[in-house]
């Protein structure tokens, strides 16, 4: 049995309490949400926090709600609830696509949206999903809250904009008309991290794409949203040629590395192929053409 190094543990009773603890304990403290990344890393002693602040009692962070302009998701919302949510499925089918292939049911029962984003693993799927959807992250501290875009949220591999005395509390996804989204992932085995994933979202204006975004996972630290992809999609009419062009842009703008999951060349190919597929499906959904 793998056992972690000694640590102290406290259950937060409110968001304010959690942030206060974090502020007091500093960088040696970590929030534990679902714990499905942090606890294995602690057991392998790759992470050795001195304090764990358990935020699983913060019921105020478990929600998925919508208003006229956006969908708001509490940071503690579990994968399982993202998978099951009809609201999300209706507005952003990319969530259900992705959640079906994230880890396994046991992990999905515990893991959370906020935890996934804060872990900031370059292979993590929900970062690509949120990037494609142009989501914004609400970060709270004792002095108030700030809202950052996904592009600004991820600072680097395993690094986010959330400071030592801050907490990610909510993810906001803008609601715009005529949208479609989809997620494509290739993995070595069910439950494995992605070899490469591609998430796409498009917003149609009649027969043309008004706006479109692609987020990639597992092909480098800074590929969650590619500007040139959005430029190529803006105002373009959907076609196989367009998907190919955008797939090629995605492939050209990622930085995969050869590892046990695959060669860099293969991953670059997948970035292209999966972007083509996710875009094709996103457009089909936006235009009611999905088979």
């Amino acid at each position: 049995m793998q056992v972690p190094a000694p640590f102290e543990y406290e259950r937060a009773t409110s968001v304010e309490h959690a942030i206060a603890l974090r502020e007091r304990l500093g960088e040696e403290a970590r929030f534990v949400a679902g714990g499905h990344s942090l606890l294995p890393m602690m057991k392998l002693r790759l992470a050795n926090p001195e304090y764990l602040i358990d935020i699983n009692d913060l019921s105020e962070l478990f929600y998925i709600s919508e208003d006229a302009n956006e969908v708001r998701i509490g940071a503690m919302t579990r994968h399982r609830d993202l998978l099951d949510s009809e609201l999300l499925a209706q507005h952003f089918p990319i969530f259900r696509d992705a959640e079906k292939v994230i880890a396994d049911p046991v992990v999905r029962n515990r893991g959370t949206l906020g935890g996934s984003l804060c872990q900031a693993d370059p292979s993590e799927d929900l970062s690509a999903v949120c990037a494609a959807l142009d989501a914004a992250c609400v970060i709270k501290s004792t002095s108030g809250e700030r809202v950052v875009s996904m592009a600004d949220f991820h600072v680097g591999p395993y690094e986010t904009a959330v400071g030592d005395a801050e907490m990610l509390t909510e993810i906001r996804i803008p609601l715009r008309p005529n949208s479609g989204s989809a997620y494509e992932k290739v993995e070595r085995r069910a439950g494995d991290w992605a070899i490469v994933s591609s998430g796409a979202a498009v917003w149609m204006d009649g027969d043309v794409i008004a706006n479109g975004r692609v987020g990639l996972a597992a092909v480098g630290p800074n590929t969650t949203s590619i500007e040139t992809v959005s430029a190529a999609l803006s105002g373009a009419a959907p076609s196989e040629e367009l998907y190919q062009t955008v797939g090629d842009i995605a492939a050209a703008n990622c930085s995969p590395q050869t590892d046990q999951r695959g060669t860099a060349a293969y991953k670059r190919h997948l970035a292209m192929e999966l972007t083509r597929r996710s875009l094709r499906r996103a457009v089909a959904r936006a235009t009611g053409q999905e088979a």
């Binding site: 290739v186 999951r261 060349a265």
Partner: peptide
């Protein structure tokens, strides 16, 4: 024969 090794094989590599 992982997806990557199959793909590299398809490329003649």
């Amino acid at each position: 024969l992982t997806p990557s090794r199959v793909w590299e094989t398809m490329q003649g590599n």
